[in-house]
Simulated assay, not measured.
Amino acid sequence: MSNYKVAIDIGGTNINSAVINADDLSFVESNSVPTPNNETDLIIDEVYRIAKSYKDKYAINNLDLGISSAGVIDDEAGTVVYSGPTIPNYKGTNFKDYLAPLYSNIAVLNDVNAALLGELTYHNYRQDNIFCLTIGTGIGGAFYNRTLGIHTGARHRANQIGYLLYDSHSETTFETRASTSGLKQLMKTKNYRYESNVKQLFKDAKKGDALANDILNEWSTYLAEGIAQIQIIYDPDVILIGGAISAQGENLLNYIVPKLEFFLPHHYGHAQIQTTLSLNNAALIGAIAKLL
């Protein structure tokens, strides 16, 4: 009998999903669909549809289902207890109750916690203290200590770093300015000819395009400011940067790392900064990590 588990990762832009063979963590099938607006079309209904389609297609009698989701998640209750404006009407969504007809076992995690668990499942990090931030529609954080595990906080709200650095003049936060959404908005504001094509932006910058470099320098300054706050608060061994933009690797880090010293005390120092090794699969693996 196959040892298949279903993982679903809910983001502000897309819902990624996969059937994963738990024996070797290989992907049997994976898909991605746009995230419903959660007003006329509900996210929970789309998640139910995805899970049921995999359960039926692969004849999984006792379904182990892992859910990774944006927002503040109560892992035990399987509920969204807080959500920012990127996903309207999301607070109060209860995955455990709504999906109960489908699963035998379920794990519901915050998406960045899941991404970090997935990264640790895939790769053997030697460091004891690891902070992960994912950059996408918003910005999220997760902190892992080898002895204590993933730190979630007293009210499941630990590491909500996207809300740092609120600026009352512009009414923006770290997330607003430094997320991929913030970068795309900056590209439009500065009339970049390829509008919101982030991959092309990095290509043009590498070729020496002045506007592309100007955009990336401004955006990466916002990002470096937030990472400096993480350094001061957590003092981790390593800070991982995840999300689709992490595929830029050294091209991304070369914009960020040199700017950190401007937001830290003189000779303060900082953790090793690197992009995640698992890229976009980490949250899906992390979603089922507790079910392995």
Rank of each mutant, 00 (worst) to 15 (best):
N89W: 04
H151A: 13
F263L: 07
I106H: 05
A59S: 15
N254L: 12
I106R: 00
Y222R: 04
D45S: 11
G286D: 05
E261W: 01
Y192W: 07
N16I: 13
D75I: 02
R146W: 05
S32N: 11
A228S: 15
Y166K: 07
T121N: 06
D167Q: 14
P258D: 04
L260K: 05
A178C: 06
P101T: 13
D237L: 14
L292F: 08
T79G: 00
E250W: 02
V72R: 02
N94D: 06
S196F: 02
S196V: 14
N197C: 00
L165K: 09
V28D: 09
G141D: 10
I135P: 08
G182Y: 07
P265L: 10
K91Q: 14
E225L: 14
T40H: 12
L186C: 03
I60Q: 04
G242H: 14
R193Y: 12
N191D: 14
I233R: 05
G243K: 06
I233K: 05
G162L: 10
I135F: 10
L253M: 11
K199A: 04
F95L: 01
N254Y: 12
F263C: 08
I43Y: 05
L165Y: 05
Q127D: 15
T13S: 15
P265Q: 10
K290S: 12
N21G: 10
Y58K: 07
P88L: 09
E39P: 00
Y163W: 15
A224P: 00
L109N: 15
D24E: 09
P258S: 08
I215H: 02
L120F: 03
N38T: 07
G208N: 08
L117M: 14
Y194N: 09
L201V: 00
I232C: 13
N94W: 02
K290A: 08
P34V: 08
H266D: 14
M1Y: 11
F95R: 01
N31D: 15
D128F: 01
L116P: 03
A271G: 06
S68R: 07
Q185V: 09
L292Q: 03
G208D: 06
I87V: 13
Y90N: 11
N159W: 07
K55R: 12
N38G: 06
L201M: 01
G92T: 10
D214C: 01
L284C: 11
I233V: 13
T221S: 14
N254V: 12
A77P: 00
N110L: 05
A205Q: 01
G66C: 04
E119V: 05
L42N: 07
S32W: 02
R49K: 15
E250T: 09
D41K: 14
G182E: 10
R146A: 08
P88F: 03
L211T: 04
K203V: 02
T35E: 08
A59C: 12
I239G: 06
Q248R: 03
K207W: 00
P36S: 15
I215N: 05
S17A: 12
I139K: 05
